[in-house]
């Protein structure tokens, strides 16, 4: 399993906090596993909670009309990359 970078670890903690996955251990996280459906098994309510948490912490909004939105939510790694590119905090 690939190791998490510090940035991925920070985003993983944000997700865990936002969607109440407290019993998930960060060392068990695969950064390339899909966030929705199989993998993390998140749903659209979770996506909203994550988007709200990202806007609070990193100072930018995820947009539903972003053509990349499916890719952004594809994995922890993709989401972390997107945050690093767009953060304004």
């Amino acid at each position: 399993m690939t190791h998490l970078t510090d940035q991925e670890l920070e985003v993983a903690r944000l997700i865990i906090d936002a969607v109440y996955l407290e019993d998930l251990k960060v060392e068990e996280i695969d950064p390339e596993a899909p966030l929705f459906g199989t993998g993390w098994g998140l749903d659209s309510i979770d996506a909203l909670e994550i988007a709200l948490a990202i806007s609070r912490k990193y100072g930018f909004q995820l947009r539903s009309d972003d053509v990349e939105i499916v890719h952004i939510f594809a994995s922890l790694r993709a989401l972390t990359e997107h945050i690093q590119k767009n953060r304004t905090d």
Partner: peptide, 13 residues
């Protein structure tokens, strides 16, 4: 459409 992960982002907007 409630199908995709961005459905509720649309609701938010």
């Amino acid at each position: 459409d409630l199908g995709g992960p961005n459905a509720l982002l649309r609701v938010h907007e």
